[in-house]
């Protein structure tokens, strides 16, 4: 007797074609201070570290031991603080908008959470640091916004008539560099995601989307960023992210940059296929060469 088993066979499977976009914000100009360096007082200037209790010679001794450590304390300008400790600066937090999506915030000490800020203030008075300075997107040559990493599921393929889910990885970015000749930070906040699904359909979303798993949805469920292909074929999906930028000179707070930065992501290739139900004689898992498999 022949036992019939039904199997759902997807008529074509596609290779995965997505590559993760490189996304490496610049942190090259940072110096380090481990907790133990803090404890022995050899850290470069910060607004809050303590000083050496009995004279400042230890600072130099420690610097001279830094040897080949390229990013150690040796290259940091010494301030010759000696035994005195600079008065702590007023407790001012960066005043960006903590409600912006994707921006990581820090506890500000008074119960509020505000964006990350550092103080790269130059020793010389900064002429462009006035709040009246208007910074435009075209001034941001030193601050490339990196493409948002994009993902899809199923990986690289989709079934005609069923939703394929696309989403963008975290894409808020913080960069450091020279802005109008002054050390500054620029923060990019995604404000719009434009999906071109390659079949003539486009969608704009305000959120980057998420995987079915993260949304606690069943596979092939429609999501705000999903797309249902109606044709078989190979499609190239391109995500373009609009960023709003804010800049900050030191602790002077975040101010908006005029204009919007648009960055296309690495395209994803999607192969769509029809699913069909076929009658097979045996379990195709057990016997891939069985009739119908």
């Amino acid at each position: 007797m022949v036992r019939f088993k039904l199997l759902l066979v997807i008529s074509a499977l596609a290779a995965m074609a997505l590559t993760l976009a490189p996304s490496t914000p610049s942190h090259a100009d940072l110096k380090d201070c481990t907790f133990s360096q803090k404890k022995v007082g050899v850290c470069p200037d910060g607004p809050k570290t303590g000083g050496i209790a009995n004279g400042g010679s230890v600072e130099l001794t420690a610097d001279s031991t830094s040897g080949s450590s390229g990013t150690g304390t040796s290259s940091h300008p010494r301030r010759g603080r000696g035994g005195t400790v600079a008065a702590a600066p007023p407790r001012v937090c960066a005043n960006g908008d903590p409600a912006k999506p994707g921006i990581e915030t820090i506890p500000c000490g008074n119960g509020s959470f505000l964006p990350f800020s550092r103080n790269p203030t130059a020793a010389v008075p900064c002429t462009v640091c006035s709040p009246d300075t208007i910074v435009r997107v075209s001034d941001l040559q030193d601050f490339p916004a990196h493409p948002a990493p994009t993902s899809m599921e199923p990986g690289g393929w989709a079934i005609v008539g069923l939703a394929a889910n696309f989403w963008a990885g975290p894409s808020a970015q913080l960069g450091e560099g020279l802005l109008l000749g002054q050390p500054a930070q620029v923060m990019f906040t995604p404000i719009g995601y434009h999906w071109n699904y390659g079949d003539g359909t486009t969608t704009t979303t305000t959120a980057g989307g998420a995987s079915w798993d993260n949304l606690s949805l069943a596979e092939f469920t429609t999501t705000p960023t999903s797309h249902t292909y109606v044709e078989k074929g190979t499609f190239t999906v391109v995500l373009t992210v609009d960023y709003h930028a804010d800049y900050s000179f030191g602790d002077q707070g975040w101010r908006p940059v005029e204009g919007t930065v648009t960055v296309p992501s690495t395209p994803i290739t999607v192969v769509t296929a029809r699913e069909s139900t076929v009658l097979v004689a045996e379990d195709c898992n057990a016997n891939p060469r069985g009739p119908g498999c």
């Binding site: 993760l20 990986g155 891939p288």
Partner: peptide, 29 residues
Amino acid sequence: TLSGCSAAPAPTPSNTAVPVPTATAAPTE
């Protein structure tokens, strides 16, 4: 037998010319 199908072990790669069903691929990243 449908339920038997769904409980079948995950397919192993094989050199058969006919495509076999596979579990949904992991996200590409």
